[in-house]
């Protein structure tokens, strides 16, 4: 009985850890370092723990800075592990470290998605050290999109320019 209970407790972790390859560096955040599935997991966590202050699209709010777009570009030169390290120590402000490392990493995947870094075939690893070789770089220039597969969309931030009303988000 006890063994069964233990197995049940372990099971969710086993599911999470199924056969998904882990991104190994050195890479940049534009090299497809996370998967869509990972960002989806992060989305729910982000909604619960981050969006209240940073906004649903990471654009910031009255009480917290933006964490995507130009604000994320400004972190160029840092490694993704630095971001996760900071989150573990300081976020959310009233309960820092209250999530598991893997959850902080999934949130990071979602932030990358919000920021416009493309998803790929491998997940961000579940340990801080797994992210130590993934560098934050500024968005590739619009025209000079490097090797990326014919990407008409990425940097130009096309239709959003004209006030396409977006699902809204926080506030008082």
């Amino acid at each position: 009985m006890a063994a069964l209970a233990a197995a049940m407790l372990v099971a969710p972790g086993a599911v999470l850890a199924q056969d998904v390859a882990i991104t190994e560096g050195p890479k940049t955040i534009y090299d497809g370092v996370y998967t869509t599935e990972q960002a989806d997991r992060g989305k729910a966590l982000y909604g619960n723990s981050c969006a209240g202050c940073h906004g649903s699209q990471g654009g910031g709010g009255p009480a917290a800075p933006p964490i995507t777009g130009s604000a994320f570009d400004a972190k160029a030169g840092m490694m993704l592990s630095d971001i996760v390290d900071f989150m573990i120590v300081a976020m959310p402000p009233d309960a820092p470290g209250s999530l598991r490392t893997r959850e902080y990493v999934d949130i990071t995947a979602y932030i990358l998605a919000l920021h416009g870094a493309p998803a790929g075939e491998t997940e961000l690893g579940g340990k801080v050290d797994d992210l130590a070789d993934i560098e934050i770089v500024a968005a590739p220039a619009a025209g000079a999109a490097p090797a990326a597969p014919a990407a008409p969309a990425p940097a130009a931030a096309p239709a959003a320019g004209e006030a396409a009303p977006q699902p809204a988000n926080d506030g008082h």
């Binding site: 906004g55 649903s56 699209q57 990471g58 654009g59 910031g60 709010g61 009255p62 933006p66 777009g69 130009s70 604000a71 931030a157 959003a160 320019g161 006030a163 396409a164 009303p165 977006q166 699902p167 809204a168 988000n169 926080d170 506030g171």
Partner: peptide, 10 residues
């Protein structure tokens, strides 16, 4: 921010 304003970014 220099980013294009959208409502969700307040």
């Amino acid at each position: 921010r220099p980013d294009v304003p959208i409502p969700a970014n307040s």
